[in-house]
Amino acid sequence: MADFDYRTIDDVIHSRVRLAIMSYLASARAAEFTELKKVLKVSDGNLSTHLKKLEDHGYVKTEKGFVGRKPQTMVEITEDGSKAFKTYVDGIAAMLGQTNN
């Protein structure tokens, strides 16, 4: 059984929406804002709020640009974000191990 202190769980990631965003970006690496909105089925405002929190902590970075004449916001997971996500997943797995035991 792995020892795990639940107080070390990263609050920035520990929310359904932010965890979903981080999980998606952990494998996709980058995604468009509209793509994230479709996949997560959340509103523009809700997604923006959660992305801002992740961006403020340096877990993701956003880049606004244009494809043709269409504005596009790309969201990309950062190195710090990848590390934090891995730590979070390890923590949850350890916690689950404790629960099962």
């Binding site: 359904r16 999980s23 089925k41 809700n46």
Partner: peptide, 26 residues
Amino acid sequence: VNDLNDDRPMNPADDLALIRQMMEAG
């Protein structure tokens, strides 16, 4: 993904299920 607007804390098993689902989607 359902119920993402319900932002209550999840238990670890739900967390892992969500992580797996979203990573597969990614």
